[in-house]
Nucleic acid binder design. Sequence first.
DNA 1: TATTGTTATACTCTATAACTATA
DNA 2: TATAGTTATAGAGTATAACAATA
Lengths: 157, 157
Amino acid sequence: MAQAAPDATLRRFSGYGMKRAFNGIQADLSATLQPFGLRMVTFSALVVIHDNPGLRQTRLAGVLAIERPNLVAILEDLERADLIARTRAETDRRAYELSVTAKGRTLCQQAMAAVVDHDRRMTRGLSADESATLQKLLRRIEGNGRTPHDRRKISRA
Amino acid sequence: MAQAAPDATLRRFSGYGMKRAFNGIQADLSATLQPFGLRMVTFSALVVIHDNPGLRQTRLAGVLAIERPNLVAILEDLERADLIARTRAETDRRAYELSVTAKGRTLCQQAMAAVVDHDRRMTRGLSADESATLQKLLRRIEGNGRTPHDRRKISRA
DNA sequence: TATTGTTATACTCTATAACTATA
DNA sequence: TATAGTTATAGAGTATAACAATA
């Protein structure tokens, strides 16, 4: 009989397995995106802007579940690399409408291909059905979680 | 027909769904552990030491997949709270053997109960079979990932 | 020489408060 | 007053190089 793994107790928790799995993904994804000058979060922003031209910053922050202040540096990154453009909204001069430049579109497509490849590596050994099941289960868990500002009380045992 | 979600493209990637789900778990788990004066990583360390008395620091770092230098502050946290003890190994005076104090054992059990509760909240809507499937799939993905120091090259598209 | 634990350090990610300019 | 974007800042988390003590 095999000796129990040293972290067997933690392995019973869904969060632990998820963190361990995500760490591996993150390392591979970061390495995948580096040749494109992108980080995980700049890639995500670029893709969402690509798919939703005219998007405003506050909305983008909401979609990606990041705080507005943190988005500023991200968009500066993308703008400095000439991948996106910010144009003042005509109807509301406080807001910017985000769009992808020609250069951004090209890079987005190339990076997408590399990330599709990355995702195939990460899900190696999983059937298409299993991958779909995984996504479905993760989505349900996401709905059960809380957002950082969520101050619901938790009773101490 | 419903409009596609703004992040529909990203939702196809397993890493994105995993990050979103884990964010929700992390926020809830941090709130769960706060009353015990524990963070995710100090809780993990406490549990592993509890289950593996006599463990050395280098080994613990390996088990939890964290860097040795980062473990130092974590163990100082636990030691200052009188939850663990470090005793010089008799056979190797460079090394410490880690163990849980009586106070640590009690807190570990209380925190465990709270985390079991937390995990039930997070997996609400999942059957026991589905939870097990999730763990199994995450474990396979973990094996496909890379470790941070892993410098394997990735071809650019 | 190699290993255990440590120090110092730096970089990323992320959360909050408060500001500005418009509305 | 409220909202869009911004600035400043602070706290985690985490990675690397280099050191002292011991093997």
